[in-house]
Computed example of a mutant assay.
Amino acid sequence: MSAAEQQTGARGPTIRERLLQSQEGIVFLLAVVAFLAFSILLPSFLSSGNLLVLVRSVSILGILALGMALVVIARGIDVSMIAVMVVSVSWAFVITRAGYPFELALLIGASFAMLAGIMIGTLIAFGEVPPIFATLAAGSVIYGTGRTFFFTLEMQNVPPDTEWFRLIGQGNVFGIPVTVVAFALLCVVVQLVLRRTRFGWMTYAMGNNPNTARVSGLPTRPMIVAQYASTALIAYVAGLILASSAAAINARLFNSTMIYDILLVVVLGGIGLNGGHGSVRNVILGTVFVGILLNGMTIMNIDYTIQNLVKGVVLLLAIVVDSLVNPRDEQTSQQGDL
């Protein structure tokens, strides 16, 4: 524990910490209110079919948000996640139809995702390109490369004779969807990594003060590469679960607003964009609220453009609140990393 943390513990929670705690409480209350309101106003909201769709979609969104949280805590951001997800999963399916064993194709897809993450992390760590620009450009390059050289059709169906794979997105374990189980397991793994490992400690240290972390001798550049590689691999896992649930992966997701939904989950849940704090609990809170909100608007048959407007307003408000709760320091402003 650092001297600053010891001082904080001695004098009790600061105003900032109280605000963070209240933000979590507000998000939780909003999720409860939204759930109750939709349950009363929309008869089909509590139907078993809709709840099943809700928990599956929430789980996939949550898994992607876990990957985003890893880089945001370290003062980064990754808007290339959807490109990595659709290209790596689609290519794995194409390779399978070309005659390769499905398991080998999945490993190749995972390798591509990790390679993409390593290249992005290297560009940020050693090229010192701001993360928002590096990942924005890399996402377009990855997607364009995939559509040009790996596959031409936007929709890639799950290969036949892969019943075990379909069970991932459509099966149950003791009545609980496998997607929910997978999300829960990943939550446990990420929480343990962040709180119980040197990797997690260094991630928080980098987010709190990158210059101090670097001067202290922490391997910040290899850490950045590892963080983006991990995020890319998590995106690949989320893509596999999504494809298993829908029996296909649609490359059009790259042009959707899914990346903004992920950012909304992270920021709304309480993980500040200036890094240094946040946990899996914040991701779960944000995921539940955003999932309920999106599901309710879909059932209400609200126009897609209006849905985007609502999400945009909520995201903007969440960013404003985050800037007030976690003011940008001089170092962040000079870096221009977000």
Rank of each mutant, 00 (worst) to 15 (best):
I259E: 12
G139E: 05
M300Y: 10
Q6L: 12
I60P: 05
A37R: 11
N301L: 14
E330V: 09
D78G: 08
Q170G: 11
L242I: 03
K311D: 06
T305Y: 15
L285T: 08
A251G: 11
R18I: 12
E5D: 05
I132G: 05
T305W: 13
G62M: 05
P327R: 01
N274I: 11
G127R: 10
A125G: 10
M81S: 06
V158M: 08
F165E: 00
L273K: 02
D261W: 04
L324I: 09
D161M: 12
L41N: 14
I108H: 02
T8D: 14
N295K: 11
R147E: 10
V325K: 05
S245W: 13
A125P: 05
S279I: 07
I118F: 11
V173L: 15
L64T: 00
L123Y: 04
F165W: 03
I292Q: 00
A246Y: 09
P219K: 04
L242T: 00
G171H: 07
G9P: 00
T152P: 03
Q331A: 12
N209S: 13
N157E: 12
P131N: 09
N209L: 00
M297S: 11
A213I: 02
I284C: 09
A248S: 15
E154F: 12
Y100D: 01
R56I: 04
V310R: 13
I224H: 01
G269C: 12
V321I: 14
V27F: 00
V79M: 13
A65T: 01
V94L: 09
L264W: 06
S59R: 00
N308R: 05
L315H: 06
A34V: 12
S111H: 07
R196A: 15
Q307E: 15
